[in-house]
């Protein structure tokens, strides 16, 4: 009886997850002809034209920059939160999560107000007789939007791993003569790597695939791979090319996940020794 409770789910997922994935593959690997469609790699071939490769390069670059910034800001924040600087950790953690409950689009839109030519930041700067900041509709604004939206994704997994580290291990390292720097590099950081890996994955993936942040804060000038897919489906109507880009994107993500889990695995085996 209990097994049969799987049926609705299996049917649903086959219909709405598995079949659509095969449809994407089908469109990616075929080109339409007069009589129907034939198998072809033309869509992928097209993606390797310089103009599209530049889009890919820009997407990867901005995603990497955002991930690095999130890590640099997020790791110390996670460490402080996991430490004993605050007596009410739950409240601090909650305060970190609250902004994420705000609609994603509204959070991104908020930066429009701040960064505008006559926006809040510029009014402040002018009143302090400082030079204006004109970064709206530039790559910097896109990176800022990514960091703002995805920072909690970096902090939370690192925090959860750090707060589970056995305090005894850290004390033991100290008793055995390690100074606090060595305790961090040899004990705390290696132990926190699983959190870092999931944090990096969770920032990098949405940063690579977003089309909203680049559209709103980049003003449409900075086409990322996500914008390219959106255009193919909603403007140009070239499903084949759009599907091919999606397939490339999935492959990229699988690759980066494989690389990340390789790092994670390697550290684990080192820890075992």
């Amino acid at each position: 009886m209990k097994r049969s409770s799987l049926f609705p789910y299996v049917i649903w997922m086959t219909l709405f997850i598995v079949v659509p994935m095969f449809l994407v593959l089908y469109y990616a690997f075929t080109v339409p002809t007069d009589t129907g469609a034939t198998w072809s790699l033309e869509n992928f071939h097209r993606f390797f034209e310089p103009i599209y490769l530049r889009v890919l390069g820009r997407s990867l670059r901005l995603a990497v920059i955002s991930t690095v910034i999130c890590f640099v800001i997020g790791y110390p924040a996670a460490m402080v939160m996991a430490g004993n600087a605050f007596s009410r950790k739950n409240v601090i953690l909650l305060l970190f999560v609250v902004p994420m409950w705000m609609n994603f689009l509204l959070r991104t839109y908020a930066w429009l107000t701040l960064l505008e030519r006559n926006g809040v930041i510029n009014v402040l700067l002018t009143s302090l007789r400082l030079p204006r900041l004109n970064i709206l509709y530039t790559e910097s604004a896109v990176v800022l939007g990514m960091v703002y939206n995805f920072l909690p994704f970096m902090v939370l997994p690192i925090y959860s791993v750090l707060s589970k580290i056995d305090k005894g291990v850290i004390e033991a390292a100290g008793d055995l003569g390690a100074n606090s720097f060595r305790v961090f590099t040899k004990v705390v950081f290696p132990l926190s790597l699983p959190g870092v890996v999931s944090g990096v994955t969770m920032v990098f993936m949405p940063a690579l695939t977003t089309f909203v942040i680049s559209r709103l804060l980049g003003g449409g000038q900075f086409t990322l791979i996500g914008n390219l897919i959106e255009q193919q489906f909603l403007v140009v109507g070239d499903w084949g090319f759009g599907s091919a880009i999606s397939v490339v994107m999935i492959v990229l993500i699988l690759l980066s996940m494989a690389i990340m889990s390789f790092f994670e695995g390697e550290e684990k085996s080192v820890a075992l020794w």
């Binding site: 659509p20 449809l23 949405p206 695939t209 897919i229 599907s243 999935i250």
Partner: peptide
Amino acid sequence: NITYLPVLNPEIVTAISLMIL
């Protein structure tokens, strides 16, 4: 694994695959 597919897949891929369907 199929359950994790929509969780791990980029949203835009899930979106276009459903649109195609």
